[in-house]
Every structure is written in C-alpha cells, then in structure tokens.
Design a protein around this nucleic acid. Sequence first.
RNA 1: GGCCGGAUGGCGGAAUUGGUAUACGCGUUCGACUUAAAAUCGAAUGGAGCAAUCCGUACGGGUUCAAGUCCCGUUCCGGCUACCA
Length: 816
Amino acid sequence: MDRYEPLKIEEKWQKIWEETSAFKASEDEGRPKMMLAEMFPYPSGAGLHVGHVRNFTIVDVLTRFYQQQGLNVLRPFGYDTFGLPAENYAIKTGTAPQEVTKTNIENFRKQAKRLGYAIDWSREINTSDPEYYRWTQWCFLQLYKKGLAYQKESYQWWCPEDKTVLANEQVENGKCWRCGHEVEKKKMKQWFFKITEYADELLDEIDNLEWPEKIKTMQKNWIGRSVGAEIEFALVAGNAFSRPSRDNESEESEVSPVTTGRDERVEERSLPATANSITVFTTRPDTIKGATFIVLAPEYQGLDYIVSDDCKDAVAKYKADALKKSEIERQENKKKTGVFTGAYAINPATKEKIPIWVADYVLAGYGTGAIMAVPAMDDRDREFAEKFNLPIVETELVDRDLYGTPKVTYKMRDWLISRQRYWGCPIPIAYDKEGNPHPIPEDQLPVMIPEVKDYQPDDSGRSALAKAKDWLKVTIDGEEMTRETDTLDGYACSSWYLWRYASPRDVKAAWDPKAISYWEPVDYYVGADHAVAHLLYIRFWCKFFADLGYLPFREPIKRLLYNGYINAPDGKKMSKSKGNVIDPLDVINDGYGADTLRTYEMFIGPYDMDAAWDPRSVGGAYRFLNRCYNLLNDVTNANVPSRAASPSPVATGTARSSSRCRAPEALDRTISVRNKTIKKVTEDIHKYNFNTAVAALMEYVNELYKVGALEEDLVVLAKLLKPFAPHLASEMLEKLGADDEWPKWDEKYLVSDVVTVVVQINGKLRAKLEMSADDLEDEKKVMEAVLSDKKVQKYVESGIKKQIFVKKAKLVNLVV
RNA sequence: GGCCGGAUGGCGGAAUUGGUAUACGCGUUCGACUUAAAAUCGAAUGGAGCAAUCCGUACGGGUUCAAGUCCCGUUCCGGCUACCA
C-alpha cells in the first residue's frame, strides 16, 4: 500500500506540465476566453513569500476552475523588476542591477514552478528587459506627443545624506527611511503625466467596475471631485492697488513648497494674482450671505499686494513661520492660527465690508488658495471666527449660481514621474543647447540603460546615468543633444504590462491589436496592494490609448480581487528583522508539499481578510489530502487487504466495481452528498469563498470515510480538488482513468425523502421530528405530527396562542 | 476629526441573508492499533448543573412568532484619509 508522498507526485506532474507546455494559450475565436493575472511581483532576493502564494493561488484556483469548464484560459506571469532594492544592492556591492535581477527572476521562476501554477511560461515578461522597456518608452512618447507628458518645476523630498530623491512612502516621520537623516524639499524640474485630464472619466466609470467597494471608495476619494463655484470678491479701494515696495517675484520662487503629504502631489499651482479682487472656491455658494470674512493661504500669490502697511510686519512674520513649519508640524498641530491683513473685501451678496485674513488652515494647492469663511456653516471657519472674534451670522440660503461661476475642482494632482535613479526606464528625451526637450525618435528606441561603475547618486541631483558621459551625447536630426538622465517611475512600467501579455514577443508594436481584442480586458486581476496608485494609473493609460485607437476598451480590468495579507503566527507583520518569516519553500520541502501549502492558504479564512499563519493548521490541510490519497488507495486496490492499522469502513467496505458493499440507503446518501458537494464547491468558487469550498471537500471526504467510497465518488472528488491541489488531483484522475472536466450536479439528488422538522416553543428549540418530504407539503399533516409529539405536548398544555409554519426553513414555532 | 470595515467556543473561522448558533479545521481529552512513540482510525469537546433545565454571537435598549443577522445608542479593534472649503 503506498503512502502519500507529495514531493514525488508533485515532481512528476510539474515535469509533465513543463514538457507538454500544458498551459500554453493561443487565440481561438471559436472558444470563449478567460484571462487572469496577479499583480506581477517584484522579484526580491528573499524569494517567494507566503503572501505571494496566497495571491498566486487565488489566481490559480480560478484559472484551473475555468480550464476545467472548457474555457480558453490565459494565465501569464511577469516580473516588475525596476526599483530601489536592486539599486541599493548595486550601490553596496557594485554588482550591476541587471545581474541581481537575473538571479532573482530565476529563483522566483523556479519557486513558482514548485507551486504547480498553471502559467503560460512562454509569455513571461520583465519590465527591465530592453525589449520590454523600449515599449514603455514608446508609451511615454505617445503621451508626450499629445501633451500629456510635460515638465515643470516642482518640490521633491531630498535626502541630503543619501543625496537622492525619495518617494513619499520612503519618508517616515520626516526622515529618510534608509539613513534616518531629516529630509528636505528641493526644487527641481520634473516630468509629469497629465492624469487630471481624465479625472472625470476615471471617477465616473468607477461605479461600473466589479471591484471591491473599498477600493472604489478609495479611488473616488483620491480623485476628490468637488462641484462648486468660484466667486469674485472685490477688494475695498484704498488698500487694493498699492504695489508692494519691494519686488517679491524672487521671493515667490523660493518659498511656497506646496505639498499635500500625498505621493506624487508635490506641486505648486499657479495662483491667481489679481490686485483688485480675490477669487474664492466654495462648494456652498448658496451660503454666501453667511460669509463674514475671507481667508488666504500663506502662500497665496499676490498676498503682498493687499496687505496694509500697519499689518505688513505681522503678515510677513506669519508667512515666514508657516513656510518654515515642516510638513509634520503642519499636520500635527491643527489649532487655528492666523493674522489679519488689514485689507477688506465686499461680500457681493450682502454688500458688507468683510476682513481678509491669512491662515495656514487654507491650503494653497487646492481651489484658488482663498476661501470665503462661513462660520455659521463650517466647523473650521467657526473655530477660527471664535478664536479671533470674527462675526458669525446665521445665513439664509440663496440660489447657487447667483454670485459665482460653476467650477469643479479635484484633489488629484498630475502624476510626477521623474526619478533621479539609475535602475529605471530612461526617459526618451534629449535637450538641445537651449535646454529645450526633444523626443528621441521611435526608431532609436530603446534608449538603453548605460553601464556605469558607480551607482551612487551625488549632489548634482541627477541620477547615476549622468556619469555615462558618452551615453549622454546623442544626435537628433543632425543636432548634438544631451540625454535626459531621469528615469521613469516604476508605476509607468506597470501601467501597460497587462497588454504586453497578449503578444509578449511582438517586436513591431507594444501589443498586437488582434491578440488584445481577443484576450482583454483582463477578467480577473488579483492583488493585495496598490489600491489607488497602480490601479488608477493603469486605468488612465487605458483611456489614453483607447482615445488613440490602440485599445478597443476603456477599462483594463473587469473584476478585481483584493486579497488579505498573511501575518506571522503572533498576528504581526512578517519581517526579516523580527525573524518571524515563514518561507513557503520550507513548508513544501518539510514534506508537506505544494498542494498542502496551497490548500492551507485557501482554507485559512476569507480570501479578502488578513490571516495569521498557524503552523499546526498546516497539518490539517495535509491530513485532508492524505485522506484523499488513502481513499484512492482503497478504491484502486480494492482486492488488496486493508491497511493493517486501519480498520476503517473505507478499507473494508469498498470495491472498485461493486456498489454492493454499500447498503442502498448509504448509496442514496452518497449520491446526495456528492451532488451537494459539487454544487457547494462550484458556487463557492464563483463567490470566491475558497475557504468554505475546501471545508465542503473535507466534509465530503469525511462522509466517504464513513460510508465507503466508490470510483465515481473519487472522480468527483479529484475534479473538485484539482484547483486547490492540482498535483494530487491529477494523480488521482490518472489512476482512476478520468478526465478533469468540471462535474455538474443534478438538483433531483439534492432533495431527500426524509426531512427534519424543527419545533420551537416561543422561539426556543424544543423538538425535532423526522417526516417525509411529501408530508411537509401539507401544513395540516405537519401540525398533526408536531402536536402528537410527546415532548411538544408537555409544553403546550396551557394552550396554543399562535402557530407559525415555515416550509422553507422546515420549522414550526408555537406561541403558548 | 472624517469615511469604510470588524467584534461569534481555548484558537482560525461557518451560518441558506430574519428561521436548528458554533459547519470545517486546529487544539484538548478518551479509546483502538503499537514493545513504545509517531502516523493512522474511532469517539467526545460553548459554559453552568446529578438532572430537568438555564445562560450564551462585544455592551445597553428596541422591532418580531422568531435576531449573530434588522433599527437606535455605547465601548473597543483594524484600514484608509487627514484642515480639500
């Protein structure tokens, strides 16, 4: 009698899948398609994480489920390889990131294969492969041509110690995540993508997506559309037209690092600088009669024009203080501060003269940087008014359009894509002698990443690309130019990779229109991160390339599944420094095998909730698969004496070709359970309830252990098991001589002849009666049976006030 | 501060959407097999009680024949966001 040896079985099937290219997909107009993908991983040196396994296994369960249902399924795989870790490693060791990346990919691929994923390996992609990033550069040029890639001055986080720009998430409490040095803002000319151009469509189409509500809400909030009005408040003559004595232009360019604390939103806006009026933005123009003062942001451009002489010093001091305050200080201290400018404006609705104040609770980067304060309606305005004794008047509402012009504003800013880093996709731009940008001609792509010896960035604020002196020189249309040394944000590389999967080896185009229109949009996209950034950027690019005619759809992802994290047994995040990391390969190699690991991670809890790893529960998944294997043994070796140590009915009561071993009732019961299981597992997978699908399979196996298994029971078991434990299931199906076609259930086996009726007295369970299903149809018969029950009679001696019969629930409730 | 989720045995979690609370798994206990252990198989397992029964889904109310599920209030926990006018 053989034992369940997962590593042996898994090696065998992985070899078969590899040699037969079992999951290679190709377009077939005659068959319905299904495309699934996970958010492709960054191949770190640490290899696969149990979190990857959960993510990839969800995709794999769905992939195999639909394969077994006969769909033409594409499940590709790729690597998101640009990024800081490889660059840091290069700086530390002098090893080229290309080398590190190559090693890491090989390791990831090997590990993913050990998990038995149904991947079409011929479609593997890697964003740092020149054959890939030439098309990333092509995408950039399309955006550039349409004016959606542009340059402007902007402030960025800068670590003076590491001499590098930092992304927002690399700044922790105002300090560099690597060296702990306090970061500062540095003004640099930066490239942006004009995502705001698509703000409305990105927002409006969210509601049509089959995405988790959580993600949809986050995207809506991020875009942050506010419908309101801009209203002009005339300044009171006398203080309105005095030009400031000194030229403040130079000062303006030094100050006003307007930031919002959000990624990629470091930016300043061109603020209105009118000298005789102030334009405010409000979502409540109807409350204008309650506007008793105006507040300007400290950075408000033109502020100096309106300040009265006696207030100049106070305003200048307040402004200087506000600008000196760090981001953290401004975020932490929410107490209202501000100063009077000495100026007044006229409320167009009430014709009242109202004072103009400066306060840092008004943000320069949003709206016009000026607000009309309605303390009777707005909590912040009220707090400010109370603190500075400004008038608070109850307001009657007026028509919204009476005094202003309708205006829509967004919280979302354009996407900053410049990175002063070596290990990224070079921006395909060169500058002429005057410093004007020129696109690199498409036939000169890719702009290769130059080889350098030293990857460390320096004080110049330029990436290490600047050190490749020869590479910097380029001739375009006979003119000598200098290349851009910034690289693209990694999110640019991942904004189109799903389309590359359709024709990954295409040398003529980024993607093949025919292949794209067959496979995409993606049916299922599964990930645990990037709720806003990546998932918004890819939607943006999709709309852009649809407008250009390159894509036949405007939304790239039909259904999104957002899975939870797997934490350490103590409930904390796994991390190398805490030493609580579970290595999935260790779990496999310990003898449990990949099927156990996969099944366990699907059983661990609802897929979208965080879960804590429980080493002991892994054994539970293993025992379950072991029981499946033992059933297989019993059925295929029916004439062999039973396991010596196991006098279970399975071993003694089953035979390959005979149902005589089971009593007729047991046979009926098994048919019913089998059909119920098919239904439950099928419906659960459709609802992504992978944990209860596995539980249903466990129940099924428990039942087969009790009453004995027939060949047909095991064929069904193996088919249903295959998405979760494909190696074992394949082995079972092979031994049973069956295909893997997804089984169907028959409703007629789901209804049983005998039903249990529950009797409640005053809502409390008091008795259970067995009854024929036919009798249940007749309320009179049911009540007769209920009232003749001795236990029930005991409770109803005092008489029945009311009786309720619920057929659907097979329940009777008696009120006494 | 705002928005969105949660709270069920010793633990992870089920519950047909108002109808038998605790499926399935882990753990624990007992039994079988074994020289023994592991593995495997079987049984039990919310709490109190000899029992009949009573109490149990964070807490306090309510609606209902019937509430884990619906409504009102409270307390914790998690996520996102953070003065966005």
